[in-house]
């Protein structure tokens, strides 16, 4: 039955928003407050693609690689971003400015290819648009 566990995902999302990722300390703290094994917390924390147990950059770039974006050549967008910020998907820049991930459908297929930076959607992307978008990131 519910011992407050239904709050877990929400609490994880809050912790991630506050600290940028889920540190060992915050996971341990959550385990204690909800009286759950740490392994359960990690189970949930590592299940969802928007949660991270590793530190993330200030700007998390998520390029959609789903079918509609794939048909509209998202590969060239992926390549352009790689070139611009010098890291591959799954990595974070050493200065902590960018994290780069590939993601499944973000529901912006009407104007594929699309990506999200934090919670903002950018669509109808062309390689030319990328550097301007990235420049605007702080």
């Amino acid at each position: 039955m519910n011992n407050g566990q239904e709050e877990l995902l929400l609490l994880l999302q809050k912790a991630q928003n506050e600290f940028g990722y889920l540190s060992e300390e915050s996971v341990a703290e959550l385990a204690k407050s909800l009286a759950l094994p740490i392994s359960d917390i990690y189970g949930v924390a590592t299940f969802y693609s928007f949660l991270s147990t590793k530190p993330l950059g200030r700007n998390v770039i998520r390029i959609c690689k789903s079918m509609p974006c794939y048909l509209k050549n998202c590969q060239i967008i992926i390549d352009t971003v790689e070139k611009e910020i010098g890291i591959k998907p799954g990595e974070t820049t050493p200065d902590g400015k960018f994290s780069f991930q590939l993601t499944n459908c973000i529901g912006a297929c009407d104007k594929a290819p699309a990506m999200m930076i934090n919670s903002d959607v950018y669509d109808d992307l062309t390689p030319g648009k990328i550097s301007e978008i990235l420049k605007a990131c702080k």
Binding site: Q5, L9, V44, F47, S49
Partner: peptide, 22 residues
Amino acid sequence: RGAGAFVSGESSALMTAIEGKV
């Protein structure tokens, strides 16, 4: 609010997710 998991759209998975489990 979900946190990015396609399978959570399945009915029993979604309910488990609401319970705060995987």
